[in-house]
Amino acid sequence: MNATTVAVRAGVSRGRIELRQSATSGQDLWGAAFFPAVALVVMYLLRGNTVPGTDFSLGSQAIPGILAMNIVLNGVTALAMMLTLDREDGTLLRAKATPNGMVGYLVGKVISRSGMVVLSVLIPLIPAALLFDGLQIGAVSSWLTLAWVLALGLVAVLPIGAICGAVFGSVQSLGLVTVPIMGLVAISGVFYPVSGFPEWLQGIAQAFPLYWIGLGLRSALLPDALAVAEIGESWRHLETAGVLGAWAVAGLLVAPVVLRRMARRESGSSVAERREKAMQRPM
C-alpha cells in the first residue's frame, strides 16, 4: 500500500479517536453546548411571539439559525482554537516529525471537527423537536436538504477555521476571530428574520456563509410557507449553493498554502517560545 494512502487511513482512525475524546470530554461539550443551550432557552421563552406576517412561532423559526450558528462556531472558532493549541503543545510538530504525519493530522482534524459539527446540529434537534412546534423533521425531503446544506456548509467553513488557526499565533489573539463571528451571528438572521434589517446590513450578512447555512437549514426544517419571511420571499437554494460553493473553493485554494507555510515554520524552539509566552500570560 502506498505511504500516502496509509497516512490517510491513519488520519481516519485519528479522527475517530479525537472525536471520541471530544465527545466524551466535559470541557469540549460545555464549550460546544453553552451558546446553543442559552439560545434555545431564550427562544423557548419567546415562543409565544410570531414571525412578522405569519402566525408561526418566532422561537421555532430561530431553531435552524441556532443550528447554523453551531456549525460556524464548531467549524471555524473551535477548529481555529484546536490548531492554535496543537501548535502550542507540539502536536503539529509531532505530525511534522512523522512521515506523512501532516496528511494524517489534517485528515484526522477534518473528520473529528466534522463529527463535532454534525453532533452539534443533531443533538439540539432532540430537545428542539420536543419543545418547539412546527419543525418539519418527519419528512425525508427535510433530511435531504439538511444533509446537503450541512455538507456544503462544512466544506465552506472548515477551511476558514483552518486559515484562522494558522494565521493567529495564540489562543488570545483568536478573540479577533470570535468577536466578528458574534457580530455576524447578530446580523445574519440567526434569531430574527434578516428581512427586517436595513438593506446594507442584509448585504453584509449575505456575503458570509453563516446567513446562507441558516437559510438552507430553515428551508429544510421549516414549512415552505415561511419562505415569505426571507429576502425575495424564497429559500433561494441556487444562491445558497452558489455562495457556499464559492467560499468552499476560495477556502480550499487558500488553506493549503497557509497551512503549508505554518507547518514549515514549526520547530522545537518555536514551540518552546510559544509555550514561554503562554506561561507568562496570566491564566
Binding site: A7, I17, D89, R94, A97, G101, G104, G268
Partner: peptide, 29 residues
C-alpha cells in the same frame, strides 16, 4: 527519530494508543 526538549502533545491520548497510531505511518517504510 526525534525527541525534543519537551513535548506536551497528545495529552488526551493513552500511551499505547498513541504509539499504535504513530507506528502506522512507518509501516510502508
Amino acid at each position: 527519530g526525534v525527541v525534543l526538549q519537551s513535548w506536551r502533545d497528545h495529552g488526551r491520548w493513552r500511551a499505547a494508543e498513541l504509539l499504535d497510531h504513530l507506528g502506522l505511518y512507518y509501516a510502508p517504510y
